[in-house]
Design a protein around this nucleic acid. Structure first.
Length: 847
RNA sequence: GCGGAUGUGGCGGAAUUGGCAGACGCGCUAGAUUUAGGUUCUAGUUCCGAGAGGAGUGGAGGUUCAAGUCCUCUCAUCCGCACCA
């Protein structure tokens, strides 16, 4: 053993020994309580960044401590391996996507292993492997059988140069494709959808079953689902049997309707347009169709619309009202049509003003007067509304809906903002959608025994002309039902499908008969602690919840929610220098931190912390940090620097500080092991008692910090306090000191596993520290003989004194009253009141 | 616009139920040790003040013997959603 702490000499050594011992293998002893610790699996980009390190170190500490506490722990890892970057590598560099991806996986796996993570690599999954996506496809067919997967025409972002659909996030703020730079068009295409809307209500309600999730995430999901309670009302057309259905949350304002508006895409638009309006309506519809969703929903732009010339009948008043079309009405939401109530809706008000439509007030404030200067959207008294006049508007809602129901032109209705999930991708590197289009039988699912539908490997990538799959003979297959020549679906699935069920696979990752054995998955699930970035607050987490519920309803799972507790870790930020004039980012190496100036122009630079990225030159390569300090220091720094859910500012000086701390621990233990303890006496001396108290305080504090809220930063500070207490202890030859050294190492083990193991063995131990039982604190050791009693006068601290811990209230008051501090302030004054807080303070209230 | 979160030393951050504000670390100051060091050790470090003392948790009020913590108002920053009828 070396006399100096040299991480390079011990880290790889122990990683090898742990692997040989199989310490990280998942235990299956059913007598033990299970604990499933999971980090969101990474996309195999090929290089590990600090965000990954933070994510995986957090779950590793949890997994290691739970194992020491006697749980059987499942702590697996895998790869979210389908996706566009692999295809782009193929297009740009001619490397097949599979090859590129697997190369990256090999590289990233070894980088992860370098972090000393206690991961069971036997359960590794890669979503791009046929052994995995076979079951992704099987699950898709389960959705299809349940009637939850369907095709429909939808307006999507279409890149006319690359000939493919793009996700919203691949279109920039000017409506251009990120790849080709082409202006994205809206195009109606037949696409596959999953019916997530069927589960909207349960996805919303079950958020209440997740007390271990951050409120912020639950709120974001609730907003995304966007439940609203209102009414469906029908407005018959003047010269036809057809009706315009509208959805409104304000049925109480129905008498204020002065027009009806259709979305431009609404199928009734053509029907209601009069011949004289036809040309201008068609032009308007075309204009709106050419706008991207972004342009159309841009903030605060004037509302545009034109009259169709058609008229509808107000179902309550029988008045004729005009039918308009306008771009502020969204076809995707509600019925794609709204009733215009300018007096009581800010948007309708604005539109009516611009278009000079009548404004009819039907609700007035209880004590104020009716104003026509702005929309009045608050509750009030109903007026100008026939039989409903005089009602409180909130009560009128129900009465009006009842009236509509009774007369057959409306009913109460609940509406969600959530839309069905478009999963088709005209891309190669994803799981093929396992259906066959037969001219006779229509859509035929690929039979289970023919799964997986494998991606063909001999493919040329040009980046043009859409998915290469459509051009291969691969698409030509006989129909499984009737044998007629038919065509495979050439679209692949959104990669979010792959990641919506991977956590179900880990409990049974090598099963080649089923996606998972329900007994095993039900045993390990739900995930006890899930850790990942906030960017998945909606996407991945909502989809996974949806998948869990569907598979439960298919009889495959016996739980409602996949992730019991969720920790959303903050970003890792690097120091960033920016020239405020040129807008250029400057690499820190070129800047003097004490005098941050642009090396070229000499201008004073802005200095701030921002998420690490190549373009800002503010990234820190994990490999460099590990080479310089070792992984234990990196782990300690990351855990100590900030609470896990907050952003972390990377600061070299603080990394250095953690390195110093581990060095101090190293010296503390090596000095001790050179000078072994003598036998202990019966009664503890005062310093021994104090040290023992420090030890058990640390055990308690670290244990509590790892429970529930995961306050790793304060847990590490407790380790430092214990280390300081040991360094300062005057009783280094005592058995208590030996207990302290051992306790420090055991408590340190989940955080800095290598140094803890090395020092543990230097004390003569032969078993791994990582299979030692976690420590329990002794309540009696926490009790101090003496406490510091604070003396306050009128709530201000005026002094303190040592008093026996067991003193009662009367004694405490007596001690305090006799103290020098109290005497000085009380003398000659009238003590009106004395407050005694046992164990804490005595407060004299004087006049 | 709607919804949410956060404001504590030079910096990151601690503070059970209202009970010593600033734990722990970084940085800084002084001293010691070392062949040297960006090593290690010791002492100090919220601000004002020589001191006694005073002020102090974004700001202004309030409740209380006692407020970072509870209440009212307000300001700032960040995040999410955004014509959802």
């Amino acid at each position: 053993m070396e006399s100096r702490y040299n991480p390079a000499a011990i880290e790889e050594k122990w990683q090898q020994i742990w692997a040989d011992l199989g310490l990280d293998k998942t235990q299956t002893d059913s007598a033990k309580q299970k604990f499933y610790a999971l980090s969101m699996f990474p996309y195999p980009s090929g290089s590990l960044h600090m965000g990954h390190v933070r994510n995986y170190v957090i779950t590793d500490v949890i997994a290691r401590q739970k194992r020491m506490q006697g749980y059987r722990v499942l702590h697996p890892m895998g790869w979210d391996a389908f996706g566009l970057p692999a295809e782009n590598a193929a297009i740009d560099r001619g490397i097949p996507p599979a090859k590129w991806t697997y190369q990256n996986i090999v590289q990233m796996r070894s980088q992860l292993q370098r972090l000393g993570l206690s991961i069971d690599w036997d359960r590794e999954v890669a979503t791009c492997s046929p052994e995995y996506y076979k079951w992704t496809q099987w699950i898709f067919l389960q959705f299809l059988k349940a009637g939850l997967a369907y095709q429909k025409e939808a307006a999507v972002n279409w890149d006319p140069i690359d000939q493919t659909v793009l996700a919203n996030e691949q279109v920039d703020s000017e409506g251009r494709s990120w790849r080709s730079g082409a202006k994205v068009e809206r195009k109606l295409l037949r696409q596959w959808f999953l019916k997530i809307t069927d589960y909207a209500e349960e996805l919303l309600n079950d958020l209440d079953k997740l007390p271990g999730w951050p409120d912020r995430v639950k709120l974001m999901q609730a907003n995304w689902i966007g439940k609203s309670i209102g009414a469906y009302l029908e407005f018959p057309l003047v010269d036809s049997d057809e009706k315009i259905g509208v959805y409104t949350t304000r049925p109480d304002t129905v008498y204020g309707v002065t027009y009806v508006v259709l979305a431009p895409e609404h199928p009734l638009t053509k029907r209601v347009t009069t011949p004289e309006q036809q040309a201008s309506v068609e032009a308007f519809v075309q204009e709106v169709a050419n706008q991207s969703e972004l342009e159309r929903t841009a903030e605060d732009k004037p509302k545009r619309g034109i009259p169709t010339g058609g008229k509808a009948i107000h179902p309550f008043t029988d008045e004729e009202i005009p039918i308009w079309i306008a771009d502020y009405v969204l076809y995707e939401y509600g019925t794609g049509a709204v009733m215009g109530v300018p007096a009581h809706d800010v948007r309708d008000f604005k539109f009516a003003q611009e278009k000079s439509l009548p404004i009819k007030v039907v609700i007035v404030p209880e004590n104020g007067d009716a104003s026509t200067l702005a929309a009045y959207t608050e509750p009030g008294i109903v007026v100008n509304s026939g039989e409903f006049d005089g009602m409180i508007s909130t009560n009128a809602k129900e009465a009006i809906v009842k009236h509509a129901e009774k007369h057959g032109f409306g009913n109460a209705r609940i509406q969600y903002r959530l839309r069905d999930w478009l999963i088709s991708r005209q891309r190669y590197w994803g799981a093929p959608i396992p259906v066959i289009h037969c001219p006779n039988c229509g859509i035929v699912p690929v039979p289970d025994e023919d799964l997986p539908v494998e991606l063909p490997e001999e493919v040329e990538f040009t980046g043009r002309g859409g998915s290469p799959l459509t051009q291969l003979d691969w698409v030509n297959v006989p129909c499984p039902t009737c044998g007629t020549p038919a065509k495979r679906e050439a679209d692949t699935m959104d990669t979010f499908i792959d990641s919506s069920w991977y956590y179900l696979r880990y409990p049974d990752a090598r099963n080649d008969q089923q996606a998972f054995d329900p007994a095993k998955t039900n045993d390990w699930m739900p995930v006890d602690q899930y850790v990942g970035g906030i960017e998945h607050a909606i996407l991945h987490l909502l989809y996974s919840r949806f998948f869990t519920k569907v598979l439960r309803d298919r009889g495959l799972l016996n739980f409602d929610e996949p992730f019991q507790r969720l920790l959303t870790q903050g970003m890792v930020q690097g120091i960033t220098y920016k020239n405020p004039v040129t807008g250029k980012y400057i690499a820190p190496a070129q800047v003097d931190p004490n005098d941050p100036k642009d090396p070229e122009t000499g201008e004073l630079l802005q200095v701030f912390y921002e998420k690490m990225s190549k373009s800002k030159y503010n990234g820190i390569d994990p490999e460099e940090v590990l080479a310089k300090y070792g992984v234990d220091t990196a782990r300690m720094f990351i855990l100590f620097k900030a609470p896990p859910e907050k952003d972390l500012e990377w600061e070299d000086a603080d990394v250095e500080g953690q390195f110093r701390f581990l060095n101090r621990v190293w010296r503390l233990v090596t000095d001790y092991s050179n000078q072994p303890a003598v036998a202990s006496q019966q009664a503890l001396t005062k310093p021994e008692k104090e040290l023992r108290r420090a030890i058990h305080t640390a055990i308690k504090a670290v244990s509590e910090d790892l429970e529930g809220e995961y306050q790793f930063n304060t847990a590490v500070s407790e380790l430092m306090k214990l280390s300081n207490a040991l360094a300062d202890a005057p009783c280094k030859d005592s058995a208590i000191y030996a207990e302290g050294i051992q306790s420090l190492l055991i408590l340190l083990a989940p955080f800095a596993p290598h140094i803890a193991e090395e020092l543990w063995h230097s004390l003569g131990n032969t078993e791994s520290i990582h299979i030692q039982p976690w420590l329990k604190y002794d309540e009696s050791a926490l009790v101090a003989d003496e406490i510091t009693l604070v003396v306050q006068i009128n709530g201000k601290k005026r002094g303190d004194l040592q008093v026996p811990a067991q003193a009662d209230k009367a004694e405490l008051e007596k001690f305090a009253r006799e103290s020098e501090a109290a005497q000085r302030y009380i003398e000659g004054k009238d003590v009106k009141k004395v407050i005694v807080v046992p164990g804490k303070l005595v407060n004299f209230v004087v006049g």
